[in-house]
Amino acid sequence: MSIRVRIPTPLRSLTGGQADVTGDGASVVACIEQLESAYPGIGRRIFDDSGEVRRFVNLFVNGEDIRFLQGLETALKPGDELSIVPAMAGGARRA
């Protein structure tokens, strides 16, 4: 299983500067768990303490938001592309 994973700038300190890495896993969650073992620390940036995707992280499989697919359980097949994209929020400061 070879998944192309696109890494956003803020996470590249964990991937040795690489913008694209190869992942592995039959689902989005499995792929991120595999990434965590290859690049320790990356899982914590994507998931919050309860294991949910952080509010300001968007995950896309082949360009589609996983919330329109099966979420973290969305199946992956060889050649798929998983993009990790921070949300472009930027409004009021924390109240």
């Binding site: 956003p8 700038t9 803020p10 996470l11 300190s13 940036r45 994507i46 952080r54 300001f56 992280v57 921070p86 949300a87 472009m88 929020a89 930027g90 409004g91």
Partner: peptide, 8 residues
């Protein structure tokens, strides 16, 4: 984006 938590 915050390097630590990806927050805005």
């Amino acid at each position: 984006v915050c390097d630590l938590c990806l927050g805005p």
